[in-house]
């Protein structure tokens, strides 16, 4: 507690970001430290779990220390620790969980485990101080593409998800085949701005009538087939056009389904979350399509879209307030469901 404000330390290590943050009253970011390993994993073309785990261990103390320093608070002033315990890479998760438990024990601070996906949604509480449930949430990231109804704090009803690749995964795969490399999301987003999104007809996969699920694995095959066909015909390939057309096929389906879900459940707001929520075309299209139906679209700033500790702190704060029991026997759950 400092100046009458309840302080939560959030710790996040579920993939390739070592992150910690201090958040006041579940809403105000006092510090947000993110140590990214992206440069290390680029050499391998993707995240290598064992290397990620090793790196998390080397960074975790400094990241926590800096989060406290940046917020100008001491460990003793922290009222609650929240840590991501799943879903994610098990070896990566356990660094954060072990660190959180050691700190909770050493400093006598209650600890609650946070579902990483709830954290992504909570990022919006930090960005939009007046936002309260109910709302519809759209989570798009390297590992997830999900539509979730949020009737109240800490209550998430998953309505649809991907049946194969997550949106971010599809971006990575296609970026690799067109030579843009890793990480695919930002690179495709950038190239697409120079390209014509109607130049190549990639199929939109809507699945059964009314389904809120996604399927993106076919797009990679389509991209490969297109490249082969053009190469055989001796035509030069315009990478920007491929990126723009592919991206459009992904984000159009996502936007349509998110809006459909909001209408179906009578939600007047859609909040976006996850790394791919930073995609500029997805942001624009969401606003267009939701706007036509009188639905507001809220999104966190890019720094809160990536994996971070602040969103975990916010989710932990609301879980604790709702009565989540502190747990020093917390375990990592790599396949944690919503």
């Amino acid at each position: 507690m400092k100046d009458g404000r309840f302080l939560t330390l959030g710790i996040e290590t579920s993939c390739d970001e070592t992150a910690a943050s201090v958040v006041a009253d579940g809403r105000f970011v006092m510090s947000n430290v993110i140590s990214s390993q992206i440069d290390i994993h680029t050499a391998y073309g993707g995240v290598v779990p064992e290397i990620a785990s090793r790196k998390h261990l080397e960074c975790i103390n400094d990241v926590i220390g800096k989060a406290l320093d940046d917020a100008c608070v001491s460990a003793g002033e922290i009222d609650l620790i929240g840590v991501t315990y799943g879903p994610g890479l098990v070896g990566a998760l356990l660094i954060g969980v072990a660190a959180a438990k050691a700190m909770a024990y050493a400093c006598d601070i209650p600890l609650v485990g946070v579902n990483h996906m709830h954290g992504h949604i909570a990022a919006n509480y930090l960005e939009h101080k007046d936002l309260e449930p109910p709302f519809m949430a759209l989570i798009v990231s390297g590992g997830h593409t999900e539509i979730v109804n949020v009737p109240e704090y800490n209550k998430c009803e998953k309505l649809g998800g991907t049946r194969d690749d997550a949106a971010g995964e599809a971006f990575d795969k296609v970026a690799r085949v067109i030579g843009l490399g890793y990480p695919g999301g930002p690179k495709i987003d950038r190239a697409a701005k120079e390209g014509d999104r109607e130049s190549i007809a990639f199929k939109r996969v809507y699945l059964e009538q009314g389904s809120l699920d996604f399927s993106f694995s076919g797009l990679k095959t389509q991209a490969l087939n297109y490249l082969n066909q053009e190469r055989q015909a001796g035509r030069e390939i315009n990478v920007d056009n491929v990126a723009a057309s592919f991206q459009e096929a992904v984000v159009e389906v996502i936007a349509d389904k998110a809006v459909m879900a909001a209408e179906k459940y009578g939600q007047k707001r859609i909040v976006m979350a996850g790394g791919v929520a930073s995609n500029s075309r997805l942001r624009t299209l969401m606003e267009e399509k939701a706007g036509e139906k009188g639905i507001d679209v809220l999104k966190p700033s890019p720094v809160l879209c990536t994996d971070n500790g602040a969103m975990i702190a916010s989710a932990a704060y609301y879980a604790y307030r709702a009565g989540a029991k502190p747990d020093l026997e917390l375990d990592a759950v790599p396949g944690l469901e919503f």
Binding site: I60, N61, I64, G65, A99, K101, A102, A106
Partner: peptide
């Protein structure tokens, strides 16, 4: 990690 954070 447990030892490092407790020591810190």
């Amino acid at each position: 990690v447990t030892a490092r954070v407790m020591a810190q």
